[in-house]
Amino acid sequence: MKRIRKRKNIIPGFGLSFGITITILSLIVLIPLCSLIVFTARLSFSEFIYTITRPRILSGYWVSLSTALIAALVNAFMGVIMAWVLVRYDFPGKKFIDGIIELPFALPTAVAGISLTHLTTTNGWVGKFFYETFGIRIAYTRLGITIALIFIGIPFVVRSVQPVLEKIDIQYEEAAMILGADRRTTFWKVIFPELLPALISGFTLAFARGIGEYGSVVFIAGNTPYETEIAPLLIMSELQEFDYAAATSIALVMLAIAFIILSVNAVAQSIVSRRVSGLA
């Protein structure tokens, strides 16, 4: 089928910019990625299955997935509340709060990691209180991992929900109120559906980031096999033993998990947006 030719583009610099883009992209991303694929092709299938189904590895995936899921849920809940407070209310110090939400992006993960660990050991300021009052240990448990992942994931949901909330026209809420809806109904039936796509995508990003996170978690986790050993750490220890085949196998499963999560997000986005536009 012949396409109608587009008007000739007269802006110069295509060759130059395309060349630079492809060269750097190849060197930094494509060639390393190819070497991953080449190396994978050399792995034997039975060895691959054996590696990834070892109990220690399976429990590593489980620790990473479960803690990242809980942390992302906490952040989804708090993220909506934070976005709501920042958009709808005025109070002293609001600008400051808006400014520090990005801190987890700016603060190096290892720095956050050692600080959170030191605070939550049974001798630390926070850890001591929880241990003596409730008998709960935070550092070197899964709870500690979850805390570190909450820290890392704070900005994701707020920053995706906030702009959407800012754009919602107050008229819809007024209309709902006039039609007799109480505040709760208005929120769940009018505002929440509008926020949902942004909420899902923020949640997904926080979840995916949490699964792969290393720097902030490795200190607080304690790294006890079967208990608090996260999947990225398992890759790291295989690498330190120069067992590249095992490291690659574990990494491939993690890449597959990340890919599934991002695909589920894409599907969820299209379903939600179809439903919202169908209603409109």
């Binding site: 990625l33 792969g212 290393y214 990225p232 690498l239 590249y244 990494a251 990340a258």
Partner: peptide
Amino acid sequence: FIDLPVTVSPIIAGLIYVLTFGRQS
């Protein structure tokens, strides 16, 4: 492909460079 690097775990990022430039490459 441009967005890919931020979606993979930093450890996996390190791993693929080890595979690219390590002894077995």
